[in-house]
């Protein structure tokens, strides 16, 4: 039987009240209840990373989190990366490097890469590859994504200096 409940969470810095079904994943709640369809569904089994979000400072596959677990959580999605019309360096560098083709994996990559750079402002090639190995891209072959992440890391380092 279905049970509805109210979940309050901070999504991209905004206090949000969502009515969710107990059977919903966080991915469903973000897409269907909050209307944030930037987070994409690729597999629903936590294998592709398209639904990556940051929850309470931790990178998660939102398809593997149940919506009620998000009560009181702080959640960052792709929609929260840009500050108004000012794109995040990762977003700018992905565009400059043509690091996306179809673009459906892009939100997940951006969120996962942001989480990496939040932790490690100057990752090596191997560290980027390791961190982003949970995100599948079938279009680009990854090289341009790697370059974009390195350039964005450099942008962030120089702007924080």
């Amino acid at each position: 039987m279905s049970t509805k409940r109210v979940v309050t969470a901070t999504i991209n810095g905004t206090d949000s009240t969502l009515i969710v079904d107990d059977r919903m994943s966080l991915l469903d709640a973000l897409r269907d209840a909050a209307g944030l369809t930037g987070t994409k569904e690729g597999c629903l089994t936590g294998d592709c990373g398209a639904c990556s979000v940051i929850m309470n400072g931790r990178l998660v596959d939102s398809c593997l989190v149940m919506a009620p677990e998000a009560e009181g959580a702080i959640i960052e999605t792709v929609e929260g990366l840009a500050q108004g019309n000012d794109l995040h360096p990762l977003q700018k560098r992905f565009l400059e490097h043509a690091a996306l083709q179809c673009g459906v994996c892009t939100p997940g990559f951006l969120v996962a890469a942001k989480d990496l750079l939040d932790r490690n402002p100057e990752p090596t090639d191997d560290e980027v590859r390791y961190w982003l190995a949970g995100n599948l891209c079938r279009c680009t072959g990854y090289d341009k994504i790697l370059r974009a992440v390195h350039d964005a890391a450099a942008d962030l380092r120089s702007s924080s200096r």
Binding site: K40, F94, L100, V104
Partner: peptide, 23 residues
């Protein structure tokens, strides 16, 4: 030349609407 793709911004901000996003 290598201009920024015209539909790029929507794809990096999550505004681009894929098939499953319509309701």
């Amino acid at each position: 030349t290598r201009p920024i793709r015209h539909d790029g911004e929507d794809k990096v901000t999550g505004r681009a609407q894929s098939g499953a996003d319509i309701s």
